[in-house]
Design a protein around this nucleic acid. Structure first.
Lengths: 174, 174
DNA sequence: GACCGGCACGAACGATCGTGCTATTATTCT
DNA sequence: AGAATAATAGCACGATCGTTCGTGCCGGTC
């Protein structure tokens, strides 16, 4: 199986060379296991994507770094970005997992919004821009990238994503 | 369960008030059942989204109609658009289902490309545009819409999608 | 040496999964 | 009417699922 919902103790135990029950004892429920996976993924996302971008100058340079790291994250994730897959799996399955996902995605989008605001304050972007709209469009471009790359296996996915980003940045810049 | 991969004969039989084996006899395998679902969905998609848009004038009016119908399709689909969910589920599960999905999505993207070309020929868009790039960006906007609407439950999703579309159209227009 | 909490184990549970086989019932054709 | 054909049901299979239970091992504390 694949994805967060398809994760099973049996399969995971085999891979970890442990007994199913021994592994289960650690997490006490499948929900807890799923949450642990998401927590770990979020930590990795911060380390790989956000943290290195914070070293860049505020504004467009930082946004470019975020996107570049984000692309690397998508490319590196075996089985696809866990947040994307889990979002589709859990979007109509209420529970703590969906709540966690919701919060994580919201924080990330707020971060993107803030990055756009900083870009406006730094003079890279126009001042009257809608920062949440920028976050939506940037996020959409990355959704498109993941889709093109994973399902379609399109070798031009990176090129398309780059072109879309340039178009987006140009339109929000002075 | 949810999604095309989570579809089961047992659940479906209960819902259809049939025996599991009776239902199974119709499709002879789960793969065939999934294919049948996709074929049906594609037919519905044509009827609800593509066909009515073909009655509109070539160019931007037709593109606007396509998007409007597409939004309605996303909104109307209980459990989300089956193509989106299935894409995530099957993108690394080789087989006839993935092949079918791949072909369907490719056809749809080609159709969007062609619509952009027609818009250029009609004088709505600039002539030197990259029509496949337009398809990518339009598709991305809709992926963003589905994501915002379904996982985030964002009431502004429609508004964001509209704004992104206007921005996109403006940039490809003369 | 007795006792303890934390870990990991094997076994088993009820449920559901996809998929076969074998009847039985409906429908259609001669 | 009877024969042929299709549709549905019944039942069972091996597998896997999440979960529970009882048990043993191992390091530290009294």
């Amino acid at each position: 199986m694949v994805g967060l919902a398809g994760l099973s103790f049996g399969e995971l135990a085999t891979e970890a060379q442990m007994s199913k029950s021994g592994l289960f004892a650690h997490y006490r429920s499948k929900e807890n296991l799923q949450l642990a996976v998401l927590e770990y993924a979020q930590e990795r996302f911060y380390i790989q994507v956000i943290s290195p971008a914070l070293k860049k100058k505020r504004g467009v340079p930082r946004i470019r770094a975020l996107v570049a790291n984000w692309v690397k994250w998508e490319d590196g994730a075996a089985g696809g970005c866990v947040f994307l897959a889990a979002s589709v799996d859990f979007d109509d399955r209420p529970g703590v997992v969906r709540d966690y996902l919701w919060k994580a995605q919201k924080e990330w989008l707020d971060f993107l919004s803030k990055s756009a605001r900083l870009a406006a304050e730094a003079g890279d972007f126009r001042r009257e821009i809608d920062t949440a709209q920028f976050a939506y469009e940037l996020y959409s471009i990355m959704l498109g990238y993941a889709h093109y790359k994973r399902l379609l296996g399109d070798r031009k996915a990176g090129q398309r994503q780059k072109a879309a980003l340039e178009r987006l940045l140009a339109q929000y810049s002075k």
